[in-house]
Amino acid sequence: MNELDQLYQQVILDHSKRRIGSPLVEPETGHRHGESHQHNPICGDQIRVRVELEGEQFTAMSWEGDGCSISMASASVLSEMLPELTREQFLDKLDLFREMMRSKGTMTPDEEVLEDAVAFAGVSKFPARVKCAMLAWVAAEVAMLEAA
């Protein structure tokens, strides 16, 4: 696979069109929720992420955004993963995802932990696109902290 195809894995192209978790939904009453709006000033990409928690457990993530296929797919993949996770599990995955993004293509990611998000491994070879992949994750983290 050439580098471009590694970047634009089929999973990413599919998710960028399906946009799981978009648009935003109103939080269920009784659930703690938080929201974050993140911007990539370089390209103007932006995303608004809303998360809901019951105790330590995420119950939902929804989002609205405008951006490239990498940033939209990343939000979609995360929306699918997040409702299965506790705060701690999410933070572990976030650490690993961030480490993978900073690896410049040198890291073989653990598929057990990152699930579908391993598809973004190819992004790490393109430093200019790392922010795109990180945008939803960063927004989810800020939203989670706000919900606390």
Partner: peptide, 20 residues
């Protein structure tokens, strides 16, 4: 998205600007 267009073009050696 323009970012994706720019990436595709770059893979063919073509440098353009994307963004605002």
């Amino acid at each position: 998205h323009p970012h994706d267009v720019g990436q595709f073009l770059d893979s063919r050696g073509i440098a353009v600007r994307v963004g605002h």
